[in-house]
């Protein structure tokens, strides 16, 4: 057992025993696979694991917690950004969550391959936590080469690329449901006046583009949408493009600094008009 895992169980045990939280959201292992799990009882903390299979961004489960619930949550660097953003967007009350931050060495898929998001991970250490497990470490430089590859395509090529991808979409909404920042109680994608339930063009385009624009300034690039997609649409590329634009236009990076005001909140048409024009 790694030290992180040992310390994680000890911290979780303490939290539950001292009734500082009602339950802890963490990871468990069964049949060689890692799943999210909910520990309600201190005697069950031995279930908790932390290993390279712990890819899930557990912060999505914070949205299901009741307002009076105190919740412990295991968070890697990327996951912590979602928590920051959720707090900023008034979806999560800071005092209601106890963040078991984990300094992350990267997670891997079932074949042992690194996830794309880990290859150039900028924030391996959580940006918000109540206790940190593991040593602090440096992140890597932001690398948008995946986005630039698509940006360099001609309009026609890009359209062809995304058409090919979106044709695969079955509208299972895994991308939306797994996204911690897709917290709207009523979603435009469920409203047939916005998007019909059809799988034909342009409905699939509309679904994905509505989501891309809606998560602008909120998406923290955790890549869960892409991982959840059963037909492997490279959704992270799409959302990172928006993330890159937001960064360039507003100098804002979602989920990094709790003090930064989200651009969609702070946007001032008069002040920011010139900036938008230039781009």
């Amino acid at each position: 057992m790694s030290d992180i895992e040992k310390n994680l169980r000890a911290e979780a045990k303490k939290l539950l025993e001292e009734k500082k939280v009602d339950y802890v959201i963490g990871y468990e292992e069964s049949n060689g696979k890692v799943s999210p799990c909910f520990i309600d009882n201190a005697k069950d903390v031995e279930k908790l694991v932390f290993n390279p299979g712990c890819v899930h961004n557990l912060s999505v489960y914070l949205l299901e917690a009741d307002a009076e619930n105190k919740v412990g949550i295991v968070a890697k660097g990327c996951d912590s950004r979602a928590i920051i953003e959720l707090i900023k967007q008034n979806q999560v009350i800071r005092d209601n969550v106890f963040i078991l931050g984990i300094s992350c060495d990267g997670v891997k898929d079932l074949l042992g391959k690194d996830y794309d998001k880990c290859k150039n991970c900028k924030y391996p250490v959580p940006l918000i936590y109540d206790v940190l497990l593991g040593e602090k470490k440096e992140g890597k430089e932001e690398d948008y080469s995946d986005v630039e590859e698509i940006e360099s395509m001609s309009l026609e090529e890009r359209k062809k690329f995304w058409n090919k991808q979106f044709e695969k979409c079955i509208k299972c909404h895994a991308c939306r449901n797994i996204c911690p920042l897709c917290y709207c109680e009523e979603c435009a994608l469920d409203d047939k006046n916005w998007v019909s339930k059809s799988h034909k063009f342009p409905e699939i385009w509309m679904s994905h583009l509505i989501r891309a624009l809606h998560t602008a300034g909120r998406c923290v690039s955790c890549g869960e949408c892409e991982r959840a997609c059963p037909v492997n649409i490279p959704l992270r590329k799409l959302y990172r493009k928006i993330g890159k634009d937001v960064k360039e236009l507003f100098d804002y990076e979602a989920g990094v600094n709790a003090e930064d005001v989200p651009p969609l909140v702070a946007f001032d048409l008069d002040k920011d008009k010139e900036k938008i024009k230039q781009n």
Partner: peptide, 25 residues
């Protein structure tokens, strides 16, 4: 069910799921 995200992935990729919606556009 606690960890279930409520997406339709399992049902849509299932070779035996038959349910459908009818809608006007």
């Amino acid at each position: 069910s606690r960890k279930c995200l409520g997406c339709g992935c399992c049902t849509y990729i299932c070779p035996t799921c038959t349910c459908f919606d009818v809608s006007d556009e």
